[in-house]
Design a protein around this nucleic acid. Structure first.
Lengths: 230, 230
DNA sequence: CCATAATTCATACGTTCGTTTTAATCATAG
DNA sequence: CTATGATTAAAACGAACGTATGAATTATGG
């Protein structure tokens, strides 16, 4: 057991530093020398343990996403088995997906707020391979949750639900990434009021907004005089 | 007469290429050589005309944002003078801010969809100075629109409105940036259905969602309720 | 205890980056 | 036409990047 201590330590220290630095400065904006410098390990350690910078950030995500997505699946399965065939409430589904992610930020062993902000920021990351990787990691879970929403909202066209899922992801991503990084709108009172109980209050706030948007009146398209879709 | 043609051409060609490349690959992910290469101008032209890469992206934004923010101000002023003292409808305010931005994407002379996507992506851009620059550019307009929402929704706590403005920005940013770049959720039908009439349909869809979220039931915070949990 | 594998280390490689420099080319005014 | 200032062009700068190398160090199994 003692034999692997230094190995694991080095790997974990690199992952921790990379997580924090990618969150703060983005993928392209973070250099290997910054990462290894902050982690207190040799420059070559990243390539030795992970192979490349690309593999490193993938491992940074995998370390957290594996648990998160399994948890999301577990919750949805549990909800559906409890519902016993009946449709779930949209609020249950939304909370299972987005609430689980936000509550993860309270658990420092799972990356805490740092990973959450990295997550929020990376969904619009410029680098092609990162988006491709995330899309792949998320595919199964997203499909399950989309399907659950289809059944929970049988009167809403599927395309509309997909779009609103998209909007919800954006609102969440932004809410997370911006809690204390970007302050286009805020800039005055949010910081003080919510510096401590940030997550306690952010979750209900976001959930209200998401559910309001998800259940909003359906849009009317300007030239809509012909047949409906789907 | 003819004397300024080449100068203006070079400047504009650089700005156009930079706009497109920053949109596609981000700020750090785009090199001066890519920009000048695509624009068909000499590498040194950027530093000659703009001074630095940082100044270049600021000019890329200023070229479009000046008009957009003036238009937003004009619209809000007009709405308020028409209302003649009475409170505006939230939908008018939201449309003035977000609708104006989306409609700008239909005008190719104002950057079209390219600038809109650059905009959406940059709001979560890692580079510190870019976020600071945008925050500064937006300050006046955002304050005016926030104030308008305060008056339009007198029963909603101001902090709540600020948060929901924040969420709306995120949903919009994401909706724009992702229309054909990132496809975490979509990946199947949106592309085909909305490749042509993307903007015609995106605007009503987004507006419904935003207004639903803005007017949603107020959140209940756990510690305000007498009982702890359920 | 020693052979061997695993890990760390210092160092260097080849590229690419943003910027600068200096000379050539252009347009315009006197 | 020529003087002058503005623009473009080619080339190079030093710095930083991700990665690779080979030796030194550490841990492990027989």
């Amino acid at each position: 057991m003692v034999e692997a201590v230094r190995l694991i330590d080095t790997r974990e220290r690199i992952l921790d530093s990379a997580e924090r630095l990618f969150m703060a400065h983005g993928y392209d904006g973070t250099s290997m020398r910054q990462i290894t410098g902050e982690a207190g390990v040799n420059l070559a350690a990243v390539n030795y343990h992970f192979g490349s910078k690309e593999s490193l950030i993938q491992e940074v995500f995998r370390r957290r996403l594996d648990w998160l997505n399994e948890e999301r699946m577990r919750i949805l399965n549990e909800l559906e088995s409890e519902a016993d065939g009946k449709a779930l409430k949209p609020s249950q589904i939304v909370d299972g997906f987005f609430g689980t992610m936000l509550r993860m930020a309270g658990d420092e062993n799972r990356g805490g707020i740092t990973f959450l902000r990295l997550m929020g920021r990376t969904l619009t990351e410029p680098s092609e391979f990162i988006r491709a990787f995330l899309a792949h990691e998320y595919k199964v879970v997203l499909d399950r949750y989309k399907e659950a929403l289809f059944q929970a909202l049988p009167d809403v066209p599927k395309a509309e639900i997909v779009w609103r899922f998209h909007f919800m992801l954006g609102a969440t991503s932004y809410a997370i990434a911006g809690t204390d990084a970007l302050r286009l709108v805020t800039d005055w009172q949010i910081e003080k009021e919510d510096s401590v109980d940030r997550l306690d209050r952010l979750l209900p706030r976001l959930m209200s907004f998401l559910l309001g948007g998800l259940r909003a009146q359906l849009p009317q398209f300007p030239e809509e005089a012909a047949s409906d879709g789907e």
